[in-house]
Amino acid sequence: MARENLFHCQLITPDAALADELVSSVVVTAHDGELGVLRDRAPLLCRLGVGGLRMQTPTGTRQFFIDGGFMQVYSNELVILTPQARPIDQIPVQDTQRQLKEWQEKTAHSLAEQETKDVEVRRLRAQLRLAVKNK
C-alpha cells in the first residue's frame, strides 16, 4: 500500500488509548449515520453514535464497537474520543444476548428508567449486530 495514502488515527477512551496507528481509511458511526474518512480530509468536528468503527491498516482491518463520543479530523490526524470502546472480536455474544434479554424483560417505572433501558438496549443490540456480522 502506498505510504502517501496513509494518515494517523487514534482511538482514546478514559481508561486508555486503544489504538494509535497509520491507516488508509476509517469508517465510523457518526450521530447521523456512517462516515468515511480518507487522507487529506477537510478539518471536521463531529459527534459520534453508538456503533462500529472500521480502520483499514496496511496489515489488515481493525474493528471496534464505540459508545458515542466525538471525532476530530485535522491535518491528517484523526482522533476518536469515546467513553467506551471494545474490539469486536472481544464481544462475548452469549453474554450480550443474555444481558439484552434481561434489559428487554425489565419493566421501567419512570421516565428516567425507560430512558436508561432504551440506551442499554440500543447499546447491546449494536454490539450484538457487530459481533454476529464479524463471525
Binding site: A30, D32, P43, L44, L45, C46, R47, F70
Partner: peptide
C-alpha cells in the same frame, strides 16, 4: 482552523 461541524458548534459544545 475552519472546521466542518456536525451537528452545529453550539450543540457540540452543549454535549462536550
Amino acid at each position: 482552523v475552519q472546521y466542518e461541524f456536525s451537528p452545529s458548534p453550539g450543540e457540540l459544545l452543549a454535549e462536550l
